[in-house]
Amino acid sequence: MKLHQSVAREVLRTEAHALEHLAEALPEDFDAVVELIAGCSGRLIVSGMGKSGHIGAKITATLASTGTPAQFVHPGEASHGDLGMITSEDVCLLLSNSGETVELRDILAHCLRFKVALVALTSNADSTIAKAATHRLTLPKLAEACGLGMVPTTSTTLTLGMGDALAVALLRKRAFTAEDFAVFHPGGKLGAQMAKVADLMHVGDGIPLVDVDMAMGDALLEMTSKGFGVTGVVRDGLLIGVITDGDLRRNMDNLMGHTAGEVATGTVVTVAPEAFAAKALADMQARKVSVLMVTQDERPVGILHLHDLLRAGVA
C-alpha cells in the first residue's frame, strides 16, 4: 500500500512542478489570446483528438459556463460535415501536444481557407499547427508523469491548466458575476445554492401578518393558520416586529390582554428577495432561527422557512 502511495505522490509532485513552471513562464501570446477571444463576435471553437480531445471538451464546458460562448468540434466529425460549424466570425483553439495531429488537418485547412483566427495550444513551437496559427500558446516540454514518457499525464494537466487560466482571465475581463454564473447553473446542488430567496419564499396570503393593534387572540389565529410558528407585525404596511413562540411563552401572564405590538419583538431578522438562498441559510444558522421575513423597502413581501431551503436542496 505504501508503495502505491509513493507512486501517487511522485505523479502529483511531477504535475504540480509542471504547473508551477508554466505559471512562471506563461506563453507570450496569452494576453493577446484573451483579447482575441473576448472580442470575438462568434464562438470559440475547441478541437483536439484523443486525450487532448477529452481535455478540450472540459475546457469548452468551463468557458461556456463562465460567459464565453464555446463549442467543441470533434476532428473526425469535422471531416464529415461539421466543418460547417466553424465560421469566419469564430476563433479556433486547436489542442495537440505534438502539434502534428493528423486528424486536425481538415480543421486547420478550413481555418486557413476562410481566414478563421487560429490559436495553437501545443508544446512544439516548430510544429505544423503552431506555425500555421495566428496565435500560439506554447507549453513547456516536460517529462510525462508516467515514467515511460508515453502516457499523456503532465502534458494533459498543463493543457487543462492553460484552459482554466483562459477561462478565468476571460471571466474577470467580462466582470462575470455570481448572478451571471447562476444563469448557467440552474440544476443540482450548485443551482439550488444559487437560487434567489424570491424563488423559494411564500407570498401573498401565505405570509402571516397582523396589525400592531390587533388583539393577541386574533394574532394567535393568524400564527396557527399559516403554520410558520411566527407572524410579522406591521404598522401602516411596514414591518415593525415579529411574534414567535418564544414571545408567547415570555408573555403568558395575561397574554390575551395584550395587543400584537405589545408582545412582538422589535428586532427582526430579514432578508431581501434578491438575496441568494445560500445567504438566507447562512443567516438562519448564524441567528439560530428557522424563519426569515422577506422585506423590500421595510415592507414584508414574503416569508422563508428552513424547510423551503431543505426541499430545494440548498441545505
Rank of each mutant, 00 (worst) to 15 (best):
L118W: 01
D205F: 13
H21M: 11
A165Q: 05
D164I: 08
K141V: 15
D199Y: 13
K115F: 03
V91Y: 05
L209N: 13
V151Y: 11
A219H: 15
A78H: 04
D164R: 01
F228S: 01
P152A: 10
H4E: 09
T267G: 14
G227I: 08
A282I: 09
R136C: 11
A195L: 15
G241Y: 07
H202Q: 07
S65C: 09
K173C: 00
K131V: 05
I59D: 02
P300L: 14
T153S: 06
V263E: 02
M216H: 01
V11Y: 01
P152T: 07
T156L: 03
T87S: 12
L166M: 03
E100P: 03
I129K: 09
C40T: 00
V212R: 13
A260R: 01
E274Y: 14
C146Y: 02
A32H: 12
L12Y: 02
A169Y: 05
N254W: 14
V291Q: 10
V271H: 15
L3D: 13
G163D: 02
P152G: 06
V210S: 02
G204C: 06
A277P: 04
P140G: 07
A23Q: 02
L221E: 15
A260V: 07
I59M: 05
P140M: 08
G147S: 03
D213Q: 15
Q193V: 11
A167P: 05
A195I: 03
V73P: 00
L255D: 10
D283C: 09
E24F: 08
D218A: 15
G161N: 11
T295P: 09
A286G: 09
K189A: 14
T156A: 05
T259S: 09
P300D: 12
L166Y: 09
A260E: 11
E179V: 08
F276W: 03
D164E: 12
D199W: 05
T153Q: 00
K173G: 09
A280W: 12
A8E: 01
H307W: 00
A64C: 01
S98G: 12
G81H: 01
M1G: 10
T60N: 12
L209I: 06
L200G: 01
L248F: 00
V242R: 04
V230Q: 12
A23I: 04
N251C: 04
K288H: 06
K131H: 09
L190E: 04
L19I: 15
A145H: 02
P208S: 07
A23P: 01
T270H: 09
P300R: 01
A130C: 00
S290H: 14
E77Y: 06
H135K: 00
A182Y: 02
N251W: 02
S52T: 06
G76I: 03
A219Q: 00
L190N: 11
T224A: 15
T66H: 13
I55D: 04
C92V: 08
K189M: 13
L304A: 07
H185I: 08
A16K: 05
V294H: 05
H17Y: 12
A120Q: 08
S79M: 02
V116H: 13
I55G: 00
L26Q: 08
L238C: 11
E144A: 00
A57G: 14
C40A: 10
T177H: 09
A32V: 04
H17F: 13
P140L: 07
A169L: 15
M194I: 00
L209K: 04
K173Q: 11
G241W: 03
D245I: 05
E89Y: 12
L108A: 07
T157N: 00
V46C: 05
L255C: 10
A8S: 04
